[in-house]
Design a protein around this nucleic acid. Sequence first.
DNA 1: AAAATGTATTTTATCCATAAAAGACCAAAT
DNA 2: ATTTGGTCTTTTATGGATAAAATACATTTT
Lengths: 296, 296
Amino acid sequence: MSRSNQMFKATVNVALSHVARMVPGADLGSEATLARDWQASRTTVRNVLTHLAGAGVILWEGRCKRLLRVPVASDYFPQTDVESTEDQAEQRFLEWMMRCELPPGSVLHESDLSRQLSLSVGVVRALLQRFQPMGLFEKNPNKHWVLHGFTRRFAAEMFAMRRLIETDAISAVLGAAQGSVVMQEMAHMERLHIALLARDDPAMAEFPALDSQFHRCICRAADNRFFDEFSQRISVIVHYHYQWNKRDEVARNRAALHEHLAVIRAVLEGRKEDARQAFAAHLDTARATLMASVSW
Amino acid sequence: MSRSNQMFKATVNVALSHVARMVPGADLGSEATLARDWQASRTTVRNVLTHLAGAGVILWEGRCKRLLRVPVASDYFPQTDVESTEDQAEQRFLEWMMRCELPPGSVLHESDLSRQLSLSVGVVRALLQRFQPMGLFEKNPNKHWVLHGFTRRFAAEMFAMRRLIETDAISAVLGAAQGSVVMQEMAHMERLHIALLARDDPAMAEFPALDSQFHRCICRAADNRFFDEFSQRISVIVHYHYQWNKRDEVARNRAALHEHLAVIRAVLEGRKEDARQAFAAHLDTARATLMASVSW
DNA sequence: AAAATGTATTTTATCCATAAAAGACCAAAT
DNA sequence: ATTTGGTCTTTTATGGATAAAATACATTTT
């Protein structure tokens, strides 16, 4: 079979929310402009226009593209059709990884997984390959995969690496000048942290994203792609891990926010030694929290 | 088309050099034993036995498997048929990467590359994906790849990471007890280094492998999969890079060997501060050498 | 001439068919 | 009872076919 038309459907939805802000009768502009605005190729734009004309949302004749009626909910494709297949795949795959009860050392078959996750074998293979270098899986040539999994050891090694990198990165942060991009980002992070603490949301749904943002922001100061890459990897892993280990979640997250804030404020006020110590302390509690939540 | 029978051919060659050490008339043993010895499945072993029987090398009837004649050169499959396709692909790909004259930012098409390297599109994609996280390439969804390439900046960032990791690892080395595995490996490295220096091979063909072995050996002491992984990545990149930048090769390599030896001896003799300093000095010269050889 | 559209070509994503290789099962032999 | 070999099933590797999406080129309109 051929590739999916997820791009087409997604662009239809983008187009609909775009024209929803216009009044009937207004002109949509040129195809090239639309392609830029909707982030798609002209080919896709033209397919979308054909679709919208067929649905009676617009009138399209040559260079005349006019809005006929404001779109309604039923014009849109459902959200599930629109999400990029890659993202969906990664999500399903990592969720499976984190909830899976298999002991380390279990053998995995691509075909098996592909059935369980309803993903094509090719996609499963790409995911396994992607997470292989981290040591979550191993592969014997011509043979099956072996699950190493998210073990205590994995967590410990990951954290050793994190400490190394982020301790180096925090020095870069402290070396940044007042008013530099890094400092602006830190000031922004302070506002976000205060806002989240004030919200007093019992679920703290936005904590994981903010946590990841905080650590990435620090790593970025080192201006090293390898730091960034590692930081991203950690975020993904930790995120999915905590999704299935919600014990003491709220208390844990509030404590982390306060620790972040202590670091941010010390940085902003130029108290370098305080910043270093606060950050080291944060890494310690983060490590302890993570290790306590790993079962194997 | 179907998959290649590289495994079969490779196993035939393994089998031939196995029976070459036996006298005609000797029994080969059970299929299961052969499968273990030849590192293949019983299915493949049986195919190989059929092939060898057809070539008149052995007599095979039920459980009687007897060597008829000592194999000759023409019984073997040529070396190129036997190398794993993955290795060949990686080799061709990285060689292309390192010699390629394209400036950073060039667009790459999978189909183009697949033609240039005579590899299937799937293999090319897998390679691009594999080296993507290192930042050698980037991909826009639904679009082409962009070459970032092995730039000065890439080299600098890679080396910053290397320094961070290996400085940490050398502490682990120095913490190892006398007679521990790490120390045994260091003693072994000393012998290898002395041997290579004594050989006085003007080409120093074996230097890259030994260099990589030295650094990996140090990384392994930290007992962290992320260190190992990074170390391996560096080895691959540096290896292919220097293959196409052979200026001052011999002098450069001899100097490096001596620097390695200084580190190894300080470690073996327990002079910890000396070891640290010698290692830091080696990283400095290695960095300078690498940076001097990058063009973009 | 510049910009927009119409048309054709190229490239990517995805599934399928096929043969190799691995693995499972059972009967026969020691 | 354990090992060995014969047979069958499952899984993996690999290229090809096909439609989506991107891109290049030609034509028309302003």
